[in-house]
Amino acid sequence: MKSNKLLAIWSGIVLFFLLFPFAVIVYASFTNSALVTIPLEDPGINSYLEILQSGRYVKSLMLSLKVAFFATLFGVTIGTFSSFVIVRKGHVKIVSLINNLLLAPMMVPAVIIGIAIMISISKLGINMSQTLLIMVHTVIVLPYVVRTVCATLSNFDVSIEEASIVMGAKPWHTLLEISIPNIRSGIITSALLAFISSFGEVIITAFILPIGMTTLPVEIMNTLLYNFSPSIAAIAVLVSFGVFTVLYILFRLFPKAFVEAQ
């Protein structure tokens, strides 16, 4: 039992390592100077006030929310339907090939995908647009949707579908009114995970932004790398808090679907 105690202590240290940076951001957000020191030289809430007053991040936040909303809507819709085929027909070669294609954006470096899209678009002479941004984000969130819904779907009892068919329901009716409501925990989980993944995506997005527009994470990156402002800590706190809240609610509602999705 002694070894278990050591393992527990080690796990505690590792969890601290993973979560401690967020405490640091909170700490850093309560200074009025550009430097985060110990103890804080000039504690205050100017960085929060700056966000509220200047409206600096509002425009990019709105674009991020809009893109994430539509990408989630499209991604969850097409991802859920394709998950049915992937789980039920996974033994067919072309289906497993398509499954790999849909999961590919997770394994190919984002920089390479982003630049590939950028040079293709500029070769075609198309202007970057919000439509394109939403389409690309739809592809980015698809792996999250497919993975989560497939996990739920593989525990799904098909006999209720059979029952529905035997009772005379049309296949489409059965799919929409029997199967989908029964895997709603997986679908809702996938939707929220898709939303926050799209919301946080920074690299691919940076290459395909329409001129004069920016999403929140890209603006944070630009602030960090090119024109630093202490307000970055405050906005980082607000965003992380939002993400953690969504995750926590999700976890309380559907712990099983949430854990299976990981």
Partner: peptide
């Protein structure tokens, strides 16, 4: 699991900033 994955869903740029 929740504690492990929670940071993964915040933007990577925020974690690097921290």
């Amino acid at each position: 699991t929740l504690l492990l994955v929670a940071p993964l869903y915040t933007s990577i740029i925020i974690r690097c900033y921290a």
